[in-house]
């Protein structure tokens, strides 16, 4: 479970609750546009040590079949995962 991107952004007043509270984990915009480089995981080299998963400030690295994968919708391309990876399994690639 994690907050997920909604397909509809509330715009009308009637879509916003009267109470000063709102649904938790309500995402309407991606962070992908912040990125100039993207981390790419080499699943051959990945040992599944999960250090990148543990140190990602965004939490966009998730477990996938004993290895890891990246949610590129919200990755900001900070590169912490590239530095922390002891197996050298994460490469930086320029965004077009």
């Amino acid at each position: 479970m994690k907050p997920y991107l909604r397909d509809h952004t509330p715009v009308l007043l009637s879509e916003i609750p009267d109470a000063p509270s709102y649904e938790a984990g309500f995402l309407v915009s991606k962070n992908a546009g912040w990125r100039s480089t993207r981390p790419v995981i080499d699943t051959e080299k990945c040992t599944g040590c999960l250090m990148c998963y543990l140190h990602c400030p965004e939490g966009v690295i998730y477990k996938a079949g004993g290895k890891v994968a990246v949610d590129y919708d919200f990755c900001k391309g900070c590169g912490i995962c590239v530095r922390i990876c002891r197996a050298g399994a994460i490469e930086t690639e320029a965004e077009r």
Binding site: M1, K2, P3, S29, W34, L50, M51, K76
Partner: peptide
């Protein structure tokens, strides 16, 4: 340790600067 850490994310999609240490502390 990292293996038995809750897999859910409770702080996700935030607008902190890339490489923010504070958001990492909150997330973990």
């Amino acid at each position: 340790n990292v293996r038995d850490l809750n897999e859910s994310e409770f702080f996700y999609g935030h607008k902190a600067c890339a490489g923010c240490g504070g958001s990492l502390a909150v997330r973990i």
